[in-house]
Every structure is written in C-alpha cells, then in structure tokens.
C-alpha cells in the first residue's frame, strides 16, 4: 500500500528492484509481509492461439463490473468495434485481419494435421480457422485471423501506481493493481504514465478506471468474470508462477508443431516493467496487436529525472544571483 515515505528513503527508493528490474515478491515490496503472510501473486495467461474472438470476456466484464457503455460506434476498420482498452473497456478483443498477400514476407505455416477440428461459432470469416496459427484459406485467397483479448497487464512495476499522487491506485494482496474510486480525484496522471495505454479517465465521471482483476471476486476465492466466461480457455487465470510454467509448456508445444511465430509477451520478469501479471502468447509481433514491442516503466529513469530537476533548479538559483550582480541600472 502507498504510505508516506521519508525523503531519507530516496536513494533506496530509486534503486533497481524498487522501480524497475526483477522483483520476485511484489506484495512484500508493497508491505504485505513475507510470502507466507500474503496470498500468491495471481494473474492471467492469455493464449491468443485459441481465441475465437467471441467477446464473451468483454461482455462478462461489463456485466459483472457494471461498466457503462462506451458508445456504439462502427469503426469500419475490422470486426473490432470496441477499438481499444479504456475507462469503460477493461477487456478488449483485437481482430487482426491479414490477407495472405500482406503476410507474404511471413508466410503462414501449413496447418498442422493433428489438431482437433476448430468449432465454428458462426463468426463471419472466409472459413474456419484451421490451424493454430489462425490461418485459413479458400481458393486463391487466404486470411490470417489474429484475435487477442487484451487487458491491463498488472505490471510488476506499474507506472500508473507509482505516479498516482492520491494513493488511489494501490497494489492488492494478490499483487494486482487496483484504483479506489472513492480516492481518485481525476488528476489523470496515470493515463500518460501507462506504457500500454490501458488506464483512462471516464468522461462525464472524471475519475480513472481500469481492470481490477476482479478484486471482489478474488477476495471471495472466485476466478475473474472474463476468465470464467471464456469458452476456449484462451484466458487462463491462476497463480502467476504456475501460469508462467504452463505458458512455457504451451509455447514449446506450438513450436514442436511448427508454429514458429508463437512467442510469449510480458512473461519475462527481467523485461522493462519487471514482467506482467497478465501476459500473453502471441502469433505475431506485439505491435501488430497494438501492444508496445519493448515497454519500459518510466520510473526506471526517475532518479535521473529528479537529478536533472535538481540541477535545473540550481541553475535557476544561479540565474537569480547573476541577475543582481553587475551594474545597478
């Protein structure tokens, strides 16, 4: 939890582990005691290779959390009319449509023969995605569908939380990152701080909102609404350590089947945000899904930033002194 911090803690505070880099026990860092004293860190592994784009997660999240609608816009850009995560969209299913011509540089692999036949949920498409690289074709033309249910990453080093001046954003005992609506004053600092563009201020309300990782359900020992609603187990909820192992196994399995484009995103505890609490298996570069390829928490540079602010302030003092030197008129 955020607590007033004495300035004497400054050098410790801006050090590696606190603000960036590997941190194995986020709850301990947030003051929840040893790993015996708090529950394990919970998170999501979203395996996009089995996502069918049904948006059950989006709906379940809206329903459970009573998130207001955010307009009924048709974008015309794809099947994705939700468009992005935001104050009133805590799960967002991205639909990437790659006609084969445009993926010529990265040709899709032949669908492996030994996979279970995909279920047709009646999604509009050129055919049923047949392979685990989500490619399908009919006749001359083909399309590769990439569907991915995006969500707040519940970063190990969460910039939104670090910059929040009111303490509205806090780390829960499950290691997740949650806004307290009764404290948030809508300063909006968390919005440009998030390297993934997740959190936003809700218009008309004035406060910031994002995925809570269903904090209320977790406290009752239930799984999050979106994971519960997912029919393909694309959204897997569980203890982060266990999810990471499961993801490694799944990746190896896909690579064995020749789906070389599969890669994990946000799984590495050494990455720019110290690893994500909600991480992904993707079938293309992150930016294709609207994810930053190499996000770094802004607070990694905070020590340098404050140092330069100090030097800037000292320069201004110097300017003040110099102004009163020299001739009187």
């Amino acid at each position: 939890m955020s607590s007033p911090l004495g300035m004497s803690l400054l050098s410790d505070l801006f050090s590696e582990g606190r603000l960036w880099g590997r941190l194995d026990d986020v709850q301990h860092d947030a003051g929840y005691g040893t790993s015996e004293e708090h529950p394990p860190r919970m998170g999501f592994f979203t395996d996009t290779s089995v996502c069918i784009g049904c948006k059950a997660c989006e709906v379940a999240c809206k329903e459970w959390n009573e998130v207001p609608d955010d307009g009924y816009l048709l974008t015309g850009m794809s099947y994705d009319n939700t468009q992005e995560l935001g104050a009133s969209t805590w799960r967002h299913v991205a639909f990437v449509e790659q006609p084969f011509e445009t993926v010529a540089a990265r040709p899709p692999q032949e669908p492996p023969v030994d996979v279970a036949p995909a279920v047709d949920l009646g999604m509009p498409s050129l055919g049923v995605p047949a392979g685990e690289d989500q490619a399908t074709s009919s006749g001359e033309s083909g399309v590769r569908w990439l569907m991915s249910s995006d969500v707040c990453k519940h970063c190990t080093h969460a910039a939104c939380l670090d910059v929040c001046p009111t303490g509205a954003l806090f780390r829960t005992e499950f290691g997740t990152v949650v806004v307290q609506p009764d404290v948030c004053n809508g300063c909006g600092y968390c919005v440009p701080a998030c390297p993934y563009g997740v959190i936003d201020v809700r218009k008309g309300d004035g406060r910031a909102f994002k995925c809570t990782l269903c904090y209320d359900r977790l406290k009752e020992g239930q799984q999050p609404a979106c994971a519960q609603a997912c029919p393909t187990e694309s959204i897997q909820f569980g203890e982060l350590d266990e999810l990471r192992e499961r993801a490694d196994r799944r990746l190896a399995e896909l690579h064995d089947k020749g789906v070389d484009v599969a890669r994990l995103y946000g799984r590495d505890p050494e990455d720019g945000v110290g690893g994500d609490g909600a991480f992904f298996l993707l079938l293309d570069e992150p930016e294709v899904y609207g994810l930053p390829p190499d996000p770094v928490v802004t607070t990694r540079d905070l020590g340098t930033i404050w140092k330069h602010v100090g030097a800037g302030a000292a320069t201004l003092v110097g300017l003040g002194v110099v102004s009163f030197l020299g001739r009187r008129r």
Partner: peptide
C-alpha cells in the same frame, strides 16, 4: 481535475515517485 472537490486528496500522501 476530473473531481476538483477532491483536490486535497493530493496531500493525503507524499510520494517521491
């Protein structure tokens, strides 16, 4: 601020981050 009446929440905590 989105909630100007809560300006004083800024002074709830002092966070060097």
């Amino acid at each position: 601020l989105g909630r100007p009446e809560r300006f004083l929440n800024m002074l709830r905590v002092l966070k060097p981050t």
